[in-house]
Design a protein around this nucleic acid. Sequence first.
DNA 1: AAAAAAC
Length: 609
Amino acid sequence: MRNSWADSVENVATDNVGPSGGNAASASTRRSSYVPPHLRNKPTAAEPLAPSQGGPPSGNDRSGFNGPTSGSRWGGSRPDYGRQGGYSGGSRSGGGWGGRGGGWSREREVNPFGNDADVDLEQSFDQENTGINFDAYEDIPVETSGQNVPPPVNTFAEIDLGEAVNLNIRRCKYVKPTPVQRYAIPISLAGRDLMACAQTGSGKTAAFCFPIISGIMRGNFPQRPRGVRTVFPLALILSPTRELSMQIHEEAKKFSYQTGVRVVVAYGGAPINQQLRELERGVDILVATPGRLVDLLERAKVSLQMIRYLALDEADRMLDMGFEPQIRRIVEQMDMPPPGERQTMLFSATFPKEIQRLASDFLANYIFLAVGRVGSSTDLIVQRVEFVHDGDKRSHLMDLLHAQMANGIHGKHALTLVFVETKKGADALEHWLCINGFPATAIHGDRTQQEREQALRTFKRGDTPILVATDVAARGLDIPHVSHVINFDLPNDIDDYVHRIGRTGRAGNTGLATAFFNEGNLSMAKPLADLMQEANQEVPEWLTRYASRSYGGRNRRTGGGRFGGRDFRRDSSYNRSGGGVNYYDGGNNSGGYGNHSGGYGPGVTSAWD
DNA sequence: AAAAAAC
C-alpha cells in the first residue's frame, strides 16, 4: 500500500474520465469503459457461471464467479494467472434488474489499484517484499481460547482463498500474512465465530474481508428475491465512524476486485440517493455506520435476512454505552439470522471484559484471539508525557511544532495529528494554529461530511500537515506518514489513548506520541504509567508519583496482562456465576500467555489435543 | 462530561 487509496482513485479518475472534481464517492459510480492495464490485449474470457449458481442471476446477485464452488486449487503449483477467471468481462448478465436493461450492465469495474501495470503478478509469495516491516512482528505473543482452535498459517499460499483473491493480495503487495491474519483467517475459513484483539495497523480489515469474500464466491446461497426494491446483502460490516466505513469499503473493493463480489458502503451525512442507487445495482457486502443502516432498514431498502457474515470493526466501541442499543437493534431486533446461522467476527485493538460479556450475546461457540500487546504498535511508538498546565498548552504545542520544523522532521510527508477533547476546542485550536502560520485543518462531528472528508484529504496529501481532531479520528483510520500524535487533551479512558496513539507507528514504522498531562488528568496517571511501563517506555518520575496515589480507579486496565485483552470466559468469577454455561473449554485449548510466539509453537498443536 | 451515529 505505497499509495493511499485516495491517490489511486484520483489517478483512475484523472486518467480515465477526465477531471471533474470528483470525490471518492463519485469516482466509483462513473460509467467509464476503462480497461485495466493488465486486461488490455487479453481476451475478455467470460467464464460461465458456476453450475451451482443455477438460474439467471437477479440484479441483486453476483453475476460472475471464479469457477466452481469447490474453489480453485492453489496448493503448491503455480497458479495460472493468465486466465482472468471469474470476471464476467463487463457482460454483467444481471442487467435485468427490475427490467432495467442496458446502461450499467455494460459497466466495467473501476480498477481500485489505479495503476498496477508494473506489478509483477507472477512473483511468488515466497519472495521477500517491502512495505510492512515484518521483523517488527516476530515473537509476538498470541493467546487463543475456545474449542478446537484451527492452527495458524505462515503464508498466504497455505490458505485457499481462490485465484482472484490471491491475485488481489499480490496487487496489494502483501507477501506474508500479518500475525492477526495468520490466526484469524484459518479460524474464519473454518466457519467459526471470532472475537479478535489485535493492534491497529496490523491488517485486521484484510483479516475479516478475505474470508468473507472467499466464502461468498464459493458459497451456494439461495436465490435472492428480485423485482423488489429491497436488497439482501450476504455480509454486513459495521464500523463506528463514517470515515472508517469509507476506508473499509475502499480496502474491501481492492480485495474483491474482479471476483464478482460487490461491496457497497452506506453512511450518514452524504446524500442517500446515490447510496440507494449503488445498493440497487447489487450488493453482496454492505459496509455501514449504524445510523444510516437503521434508516435503510426502516425504509425497507435493505433486509438482513440473508446475512451470512457479520463483522464489527472497533467492536468494543460499537458496544459501549452510546452505541449498544443501536447495535442490538440491528443485530437482534431486525431480520438478521441468529448466532450460529450466521458467522460473526468482532475485531478491536482493545476489548474490556464488560464489553466482551455484552459481545458474547452475538456469538456462538466462538474463539477468542489476542495477538500482541495492547496497541502493540507501542513497540514502535516512542511515548512521551509532559506536564503542561491548560494555559500553557498552546505555546507548548507551538514549541513542539517549531522544533519539529527546525529539525526537518516535518517534511512533506511527516504529518502531525493533534487530539483534543471537544469539538469547540478543535475549532479553536485549528483557528489559533492557522493565524499563527501553521498549516492546520480540523475534523470533528459538527463539521459537514464534506468538510470532514476534505480535512482528511488535505491532511493525507500533506497540504495541511497538521490535523486537529476529536475522537472521531481516534480509531481505525489508516493515514500513512503520521509521524507524531499529540494528545493536547488526554482522553479519560486509557483505551482511547491506545487507539489515538495507534494512528502513528503503523505497518511496522516508528512513530512518536506526546501527551500533555496536568491536574485535570489525575485519573489517567496510573493507567498511563502502567501502559507506558508495559511498553518499555520511559515513565517520568512525577508521573509515577501521581500514579502511586491511585486516583479514580475506573480506568484501570482490565486483565492487566501483557495483552490487549484476555478472554473474559477465563475469568473464574464469570465461570462460577455463569448460570451453568461454561463457554470456555479450559481443557482443550492452547492456554496460557505466550504459548506460541512467532511460528508454529507446540501450543498450536495442543489446540488439537 | 464528551464524542459518535439518520433525516
